[in-house]
C-alpha cells in the first residue's frame, strides 16, 4: 500500500515537472512550482519525514512561490521566449542521467534496515537520545543538541542571506527612493 501511494505521488511529481518544462507562461509555471512543492511534501510524509514535510510545505509552497511572483511582478515578465540550443542540452541531460542511474544501481534498496546509513550513529540517536536529551522528537534532539554547531552554521547562513538581500534591494525602508529623489539627476536606474 505504502509503495503504491509513493509511486502515485512520484508519478504526479514527474508529470508536474514535465508541465513546468513545457509551460511558457511564467505565472502558470510559478503556480505549478507551488504544486510541485506540495506534492514533494506529501512524498516526505509517506517517507516518514514529518518535520521535513512540514518545512517543505510552508517554505516551498508558501514563501518561494510568493518571492517568485514578486520578482515576476517587478520585472513585468509574462511570457518566456522560445528556448534555443535544445539538442545539446538534451544530450547532456541524457548522458548525465545515464551516469547517475549507473551510480545509484550500487545503492542499497530504499527501506533496507541493514543499509550502512542505519548502522552507525543511527543506533545512538534512537536508543540513547531519550535518556541523554529527554526530548521525544529525535529530530529536534539531533538538530539542536547533537548537531548544535551545524545548526548554528545554518542559522548564520540564513542571516547572511538576509543581509545580502538588504544590500541588494534594501529592507523596504524607502531609503533607496529618498536617495534617488535626493540627487534627482536620474542617471542611475
Amino acid at each position: 500500500m505504502e509503495f503504491f501511494v509513493n509511486a502515485f505521488l512520484l508519478a504526479l511529481l514527474a508529470a508536474t515537472t514535465i508541465a513546468i518544462v513545457r509551460m511558457r507562461r511564467l505565472i502558470a509555471t510559478t503556480m505549478l512550482f507551488g504544486i510541485f512543492s506540495l506534492l514533494m511534501a506529501a512524498v516526505f510524509v509517506v517517507l516518514d519525514a514529518v518535520d521535513v514535510a512540514f518545512t517543505e510545505a510552508s517554505v516551498g509552497a508558501g514563501i518561494s512561490t510568493i518571492l517568485m511572483l514578486a520578482t515576476l511582478a517587478i520585472c513585468g515578465a509574462k511570457q518566456e521566449s522560445v528556448p534555443r540550443k535544445q539538442l545539446p542540452a538534451i544530450i547532456v541531460v541524457v548522458v548525465t542521467g545515464a551516469v547517475l542511474l549507473w551510480g545509484v544501481s550500487g545503492l542499497p534498496d530504499v527501506g533496507d534496515p541493514t543499509a550502512p546509513a542505519t548502522t552507525h550513529v543511527y543506533k545512538r540517536y534512537v536508543e540513547e537520545s531519550g535518556t541523554e536529551i529527554g526530548v521525544p522528537n529525535i529530530v529536534t534532539s539531533v538538530l539542536a543538541s547533537y548537531r548544535g554547531y551545524d545548526t548554528l552554521g545554518e542559522v548564520a547562513v540564513i542571516f547572511t542571506a538576509g543581509l545580502g538581500i538588504i544590500c541588494l534591494i534594501g529592507a523596504g525602508t524607502g531609503q533607496q527612493r529618498r536617495r534617488r529623489n535626493g540627487n534627482d539627476s536620474g542617471d542611475d536606474v
Binding site: 519525514a49 518535520d51 521535513v52 518545512t55 517543505e56 517554505v59 516551498g60 514563501i63 518561494s64 518571492l67 517568485m68 514578486a70 520578482t71 517587478i74 520585472c75 546509513a117 542505519t118 550513529v121 543511527y122 540517536y125 534512537v126 529525535i138 529530530v139 539531533v142 538538530l143 548537531r147 551545524d150 545548526t151 545554518e154 547562513v157 540564513i158 542571506a161 538576509g162 545580502g164 538581500i165 541588494l168 534591494i169
Partner: peptide, 27 residues
Amino acid sequence: NPLPHVLILTAIVVGVATTALGLALVV
C-alpha cells in the same frame, strides 16, 4: 533514520534564503 531529516530540514530553509538572494540578483 532522523539524521537525513535534520540535514534536509535545515537545507530547505537555507535553500529558500539563497533562492531569495538569487531572485534579488535577478531584480
